[in-house]
Amino acid sequence: MKLAVYNVENLFDRAKAMNLDSWEEGRPVLEKFAELNGLLGEIDYTQSDKNRMVELMHDLGLAKSDTGPFVILRRNRGGLLRRPTTGGIVIDANGRADWVGSLELRDAPVNEHAMRNTARVIMDLEADVLGVVEAESRPVLSAFNTEILPALGGQPFRHVMLIDGNDERGIDVGLMSRKGYPIGTLRSHVDDCLPNGQPVFSRDCAQFEVTTPSGARLLVLVNHLKSKGYGGTAASNAKRKAQAERIAEIYKTLTDNGAQHIAIIGDLNDTPASAPLKPLLSDTDLQDIFTHPAFDNGGWPGTYDLCNEINKIDYLLLSPDLFDRVQAGGLCRKGMWPGSRPRRWEPYAEVGRKADAASDHAAIWAEIDI
């Protein structure tokens, strides 16, 4: 069986603020969006809250309209605000119960070349079971599977599953598998909470049970942990550590109940020696495929951007029984921008510029005798 994981960075549409030339351009928009969304969700609005809402709405381009360059304010019922003819914004609502609606990020189509290169990576992986990170929704993932893969000569997966997570930007985690590898029991952890009542997982720790042709039961937990680039460093690290701790707890529960074949895969957004990932990488018996003698890193230690050591943020972690069954492993970087001076790897011919790259992430795979 070939198991793989790939951060596709959206398939058809992506939030416009995440589609800019650099993360630093989009980051302020995403941070202001999150702050305004948080304030709008408060039960009671103080005058200070209202003043800050007005500031954020101006910054997000909502001063004259409910549609800004990157966000949309949907007002279905109730009176949230007025825009007097004399100018400005007046918040009339005194709390979330006074109006019905939502604040949403605007989407923009993904570059067509990037989309097709994403399909090429998935085709070249030839995975039997593929964990997918940053897919918009199950209908989108299914459409990509049945429309784009065959259009390029690829074979669609038999099973496609994705459970909506906690992220409002449409970046969820899912699983695709071939005929003979049916997806059985699913479990979501979107409702797992921290002591303060906030969700543990920024997206989800989606748990899929897959049966192999030999009858073996494989448990695959697909993850996408808190990013370093969004929010303060201390808060991001604390969130990621809490997520790693919770995954370790879930893993222990599974092994205590007799599960032997467990894979924890995805974009963990931190390096192997980082403190936030220690509860998962050091305090469990999970083993990183990168450490297996049969694994080939292609000459570079990382999985993201230019794949330096500090860019090792994607993982395929295996329980001891699975790790012992590994026959080969490696990465597919053909869909990534290789740099230019000099090129670090040979990409697809269609990756003529950075914008055409399928993703900033490499896909990771492992051949496992199970």
Score class of each variant (00 low, 15 high):
V8T: 13
S274H: 03
K50S: 06
P342I: 11
R169V: 05
D360T: 02
D13C: 12
W337L: 07
E350R: 01
D204Q: 04
I370H: 04
T212V: 00
A242N: 07
V200C: 00
H224N: 09
W23R: 14
D66H: 13
N311T: 05
T85L: 14
N10L: 08
I289G: 06
A275K: 11
S236W: 03
L194R: 14
A363T: 04
A248R: 03
R138K: 15
V200S: 00
P182D: 09
S282G: 10
P320Q: 10
L3E: 03
A108F: 04
K2W: 06
G88R: 03
F157R: 03
N19I: 05
D296S: 12
G88Q: 02
K312D: 12
K2V: 06
Y304D: 09
M57E: 08
F157T: 04
T303Y: 06
H261T: 03
A349W: 05
K179P: 01
D92G: 07
R116E: 03
L105H: 09
G174W: 08
I370S: 07
L280M: 03
F157Y: 15
L175P: 09
E9P: 01
N117I: 01
A119C: 04
G88K: 00
A362R: 05
E209Q: 14
T185N: 12
K312S: 10
R217Q: 15
I91C: 09
I250A: 14
Y304W: 12
D321W: 02
S188E: 13
L221M: 14
W365G: 10
R74V: 15
A135H: 11
N297V: 07
N76Q: 12
T85C: 00
K16I: 14
L225S: 02
N196W: 03
A151S: 15
D59F: 06
P272Y: 09
A206R: 09
